[in-house]
Simulated assay, not measured.
Amino acid sequence: MTSDLRHVLSKARCRAACMVLVVLLAVPAQAENTRYTIEETSDGGFVRVDQQTGGMLKCAGERDAISCVPINDDSQKLREENAELRAENSALKQRVAELEQAAKAPEATVKGSTEKQLDQIAGFFEDMVRRLFRFAQSLQEKPGEEI
């Protein structure tokens, strides 16, 4: 019976130590405008969440001692990815603004290139018409020859 009593007392001391730790952790949390949130878990331990960084600790008591272990989460990776996406978004917005500005640019450059293209097309048709007339003249000079 003494071992059962020791076990009960040990468990009671562990719970009391957990409660003292919870109270001690809660006092600074209230002073810091509730930076930390402490929630009891189903296994008798508790989880402390840092409201500013998102970091979490899982605490449990075993034989007169309390141990806390960080809970791995992806919040840091998500924050880094968020920062990368924001930078990419900013760069894309800047590129869109540059393209919109280029689209609103004076039409002189567009007209200049269009006029050059029209000159090339007109030159092509002039050459084609000259060749056609030369061909027609060559047919008139040599009637009766088969083509």
Rank of each mutant, 00 (worst) to 15 (best):
E62G: 09
I71W: 02
G55E: 15
A60D: 15
L78Y: 03
A83S: 15
M56H: 06
I66T: 06
R86I: 15
Q76E: 08
N72W: 08
D74M: 05
D74C: 10
Q52Y: 10
G61M: 13
R48C: 08
P70T: 11
E84V: 10
A83C: 06
C68S: 07
G55H: 09
G45M: 04
N72I: 12
T53M: 07
S67N: 11
R86K: 09
F46H: 00
V49A: 09
I66W: 00
G54T: 06
D74K: 04
R48E: 12
R63D: 15
Q76C: 10
E80H: 05
D73N: 15
E80K: 06
D74H: 05
V69A: 15
I71P: 02
R63T: 14
V47I: 07
D74N: 12
I66P: 01
M56D: 01
R48P: 02
G55I: 05
K77Y: 04
F46I: 00
G45Q: 02
S75G: 07
C59F: 11
R79E: 12
Q51K: 10
Q51P: 02
S67G: 12
T53Y: 08
D64M: 12
I66N: 00
L78M: 10
G61R: 04
Q51V: 14
K77P: 03
C68V: 09
Q51I: 08
D50K: 06
V47C: 07
D64G: 13
D64W: 09
R48A: 13
N82H: 10
V47L: 12
G45F: 03
E80G: 01
R48V: 14
C59D: 02
A65T: 11
G54L: 02
P70C: 03
C68Q: 05
C59P: 00
Q76H: 12
R79D: 08
C59G: 05
